[in-house]
């Protein structure tokens, strides 16, 4: 093989290698980009019951008197958080377009102050976009002192354009401990318990 032929070949190989490496870096970045894209897609279509974690404004549209929709509230306590969360009522019957306010009581059963967060989920998933929350305890992490007991409101509007075939909307709140939030005070308490556990 003459000299310039092998040079042409080397150049070709180098060009191909750099192009493939670029493609690789692109795909790796794409994998990580999929995470926010997935979140956005879920919020857009409301699939998987992911509800907006930002307050939405109430749209004043007249109430659709013709049909009643049952909105159920279910609270679940995740593992490892000594709190108790109770909804003021088990279910509410609303007309699409109506707003409603429900109080949830949180009580910290343990002897130490701790952080918790309620993760929302809506079923059926097609109803998710039609539940407009103006204020909800699930928007940010809650802090409770030892034995403290507070009531937090959930204010939401059931959109008028809720698909007609939906008769029951279930809002489920799962309470999870928030490990990341350690104030210094909290840290010693945590480590002391850590040794005991």
């Amino acid at each position: 093989m003459s000299r310039n032929e092998s040079e042409v070949r080397e150049a070709g190989v180098r060009r191909t290698v750099w192009r493939t490496v670029a493609a690789l870096v692109g795909m790796f970045a794409f994998a990580f980009a999929l995470v926010p894209m997935y979140d956005a897609f879920c919020r857009l279509t409301g699939i998987n019951g992911k509800v907006d974690t930002t307050a939405q404004a109430i749209v004043n549209e007249e109430v659709d008197e013709s049909r009643m929709v049952t909105v159920q509230f279910i609270t679940r306590n995740g593992t490892g958080l000594p709190w108790r969360m109770e909804a003021e009522t088990r279910q509410v019957r609303l007309h699409p377009g109506q707003t409603s306010e429900i109080y949830f009581t949180f009580s910290n059963q343990s002897g130490a102050e701790s952080w918790g967060r309620a993760v929302p989920s809506v079923s059926p998933s097609k109803a998710t976009r039609h539940v407009r929350k103006t204020s909800c305890f699930c928007f940010e992490e809650q802090q409770l002192q030892a034995g403290e007991r507070i009531e937090l409101p959930l204010v939401f509007q059931l959109a008028r354009d809720l698909p007609p075939e939906v008769h029951t909307v279930t809002l489920v709140y799962t309470l999870y401990p928030v490990e990341g939030r350690h104030q210094p005070l909290q840290a010693e308490v945590q480590t002391k318990q850590g040794e005991e556990a």
């Binding site: 493939t20 493609a23 690789l24 870096v25 795909m27 790796f28 794409f30 994998a31 990580f32 999929l34």
Partner: peptide, 10 residues
Amino acid sequence: IAVMPVLAGV
């Protein structure tokens, strides 16, 4: 080339 980086990402 297209898919192994996605596995690496996961």
